[in-house]
């Protein structure tokens, strides 16, 4: 099954999110209250690891498993969309204490109200598609 590797990576993602405690509402509150270095450390090390890795991938002209040269597309520069969209997401992030991935991880962990957040997030995305020009 060609999708098995994504299932395995997803399972690893879920385990890492639990064990890092990044799914925890409390950890997100600590982050936005500047009361702990924990989340900043996780995000900082993840970005540093990713940046060094991507730099190596590009310098050695690595090809992905489909044989394509690894090149992440540049995002188009714009301010309003990223700042405003980001702010709206941030409001939800701090209230729910979860970003999209952890909503699903916490559901698996056993928090049933995550269903409510997931369904309304799908509705929110639908609403964005609806009002978008």
């Amino acid at each position: 099954m060609k999708h098995l590797k994504y299932l395995i990576l997803g399972v690893l993602f879920g385990i890492i999110m639990v064990k890092s405690e990044a799914i925890s509402w409390y950890r997100i509150q600590e982050m936005f209250r500047f009361q702990s270095f924990h989340m900043y450390g996780i995000i900082g090390v993840a970005v540093a690891t990713g940046a060094i890795g991507l730099w190596i991938f590009k310098s050695i002209k690595l090809r992905d498993i489909q044989g394509n040269l690894i090149q992440l597309p540049d995002k188009k520069f714009e301010i309003q969309r990223y700042l405003l969209g980001g702010t709206i997401f941030g409001l939800g992030w701090a209230l729910a204490g979860s970003c999209p991935g952890p909503l699903f991880v916490s559901l698996g962990y056993g928090y049933s109200p995550m269903i409510l957040l997931i369904v309304s997030a799908i509705a929110g995305t639908w609403a964005y598609g609806f009002v978008r020009k």
Partner: peptide
């Protein structure tokens, strides 16, 4: 919680 989820879904797509 419905509001929080709505903000997450709307905001992430708006911000891409």
């Amino acid at each position: 919680l419905i509001l929080a989820g709505f903000f997450i879904g709307f905001g992430t797509r708006y911000a891409g």
